[in-house]
């Protein structure tokens, strides 16, 4: 058991160190390429009519992703409804 805990700690440490090392290669706040961000800032307000560029990106430029995220939430709700439908009723087995 102790050996497994040691391995777990080692693995997590390795992943953390490598990820920190990897992201240190990217300059935060000053990316090499900025063209897509600039496009949103310059054209977002006029093209979509919204003052809030975040919402413009989320609901216009990437609205399809937002539909996907809303679907994820809907999936979670359906999952909860399905799983809890008989947990409390004492019926334990169900034929396929």
């Amino acid at each position: 058991m102790n050996r497994k805990n040691g391995i777990t700690v080692c693995i997590i440490a390795i992943i953390a160190v490598v990820l920190i090392y990897a992201q240190s290669g990217i300059s935060f706040g000053d990316p090499v390429y900025q063209d897509m961000d600039q496009y949103f800032l310059l054209n977002g307000q006029v093209q979509t009519g919204g003052n809030n560029i975040c919402t413009d990106v989320v609901f216009d430029f990437r609205a399809f992703d937002t539909l996907g995220e809303a679907t994820v939430l809907f999936t979670a709700v359906m999952g909860v409804i399905v799983i809890f439908r008989r947990l409390m009723k004492g019926e334990e087995y169900e034929a396929e």
């Binding site: 497994k4 391995i7 777990t8 080692c10 693995i11 997590i12 390795i14 992943i15 490598v18």
Partner: peptide, 8 residues
């Protein structure tokens, strides 16, 4: 652990 191990 297996998944993380392979990743590491």
């Amino acid at each position: 652990l297996w998944y993380m191990g392979i990743t590491a």
